[in-house]
Amino acid sequence: MKFPSLSSTTPPTGARRRTRTIVVGALPVVVIFTLLGMTTIPGTDIDLTVPFAAEGEGPTFNTLGDVDGTPVVEITGVDDDELDETSGNLNMTTVAVRTNMSLPQMMIRWLGSDDTVVPLEQVIPSNSSAEEVAEQNAAAFASSESNATVAAMNHLGRPLETMVYDVSDGAPADGTVKINDVITSVDGTDVTLPGDISDAIGDRSPGDQVTLGIHRDGKDITEKVTLGEMPESLQGDADAEDTTGGNGQAYLGVTMVAQPGDGVRVNYNLKDIGGPSAGLMFSLAVVDKLSPGELTGGTFVAGTGTIDSDGTVGSIGGITHKIAAARHAGATVFLVPADNCSEATGGNYDGDITLLKVDSLDGAVDALADYNAGKDAPTCG
């Protein structure tokens, strides 16, 4: 006698249809998740990236602290008793930028994080490569370091001088002026800052001879240089020392930087950071280390802002992401450039971190002093 089988290796027709539906329906999901990490289709040159970038919270660094055992802001050339003890935090903040994303990756950043998605051209202009933008950001960062030092020295009333950073090959100064020379005068008139020398050269004509007072290797000497004509390739180049005019403008051919004139040297030891927005926090760290008292009052202060050599604080991008990064790091006070205040207090700001409004280095120092003393300090909003 045969009994009907209680199991079968062949599913009923309806079951087969349901299984096929599940498999076919899952294929797009599998394909999407497979493509998540792909920016090109394997075996082809088809580019899957989208012309957008995602901006979000970046790392934050205490300018009063160390990185890899080295002070972020390192000051030498002063006696130990001139370096003031500091506590608390003066954190600079950054924005993390993600590019080279596929569409699924971009959607995940947009829907699953607080990142801001912006057209790629806002980050990498169409006439520039990623490498060129990185070089520009590195140059801007170096410039912000120089400006931070000069602004701090001005605030502290310490002397400044102009040092030759580079001499262009074949320029009028080539062979006469040397790297690390300190230029002290032009035709007998004392000069202090690079702008003083630029103005003096700008008043001359190609073919004029100028006498430069120079401090070199511990000695004061003079050197005569016959000025040339500004090359067209350098007109408008912000790194040249005398580029405000057009054809026929006198040309010396040196790149100069201001530095402390009393032997103080300031080194900034952060790597792989670009852009000019750390200037304010760098300058505050220098001021805090070279002046009595504590700017932070022992608290966790963060901030951002460009800085000019005269101490003017300028606006930056990504302010909301920087505030969020500071908040998550533990900051209770954030220094905001005045022109960024409206954006800083919009969106998700709920007053859980104090936003001090600043437009200059002097103003930032005063705002922190008032805040720490319990006095009214300028705030955003």
Rank of each mutant, 00 (worst) to 15 (best):
P125I: 06
N154G: 10
V150A: 12
E135H: 12
K178G: 08
Q122H: 13
M163L: 14
D169M: 15
L160W: 11
D181H: 12
V164Q: 02
I124T: 10
M163S: 14
V177L: 05
L160H: 11
D174P: 09
V164W: 07
P172A: 05
L156F: 08
T162G: 03
A140T: 01
A152Y: 04
H155E: 09
T149H: 09
K178S: 14
I124Y: 10
A142N: 10
I124R: 10
D166M: 15
A171Y: 03
P159A: 06
K178C: 09
P125F: 12
A173C: 05
S143L: 12
L156V: 05
V182S: 03
A152F: 05
S126Q: 14
A171T: 01
V186A: 02
T184H: 07
V186W: 04
A130E: 09
S128M: 09
E145T: 12
N127P: 01
V150T: 14
A171F: 03
V177P: 06
V182P: 01
N147K: 14
T162W: 06
M153W: 07
P172Q: 08
D174L: 04
A140F: 05
V150R: 12
A139G: 10
I124E: 01
T162F: 03
S168K: 09
I124H: 07
D181K: 14
E135T: 12
V164L: 03
V167R: 05
A171R: 04
D181P: 12
T176F: 12
V182Y: 08
S146F: 14
N137G: 07
Q122I: 05
H155N: 09
D187T: 05
E135G: 13
G170H: 02
S128Y: 09
S128V: 02
S144F: 02
D174Y: 13
L156Q: 06
V164T: 06
A130Y: 11
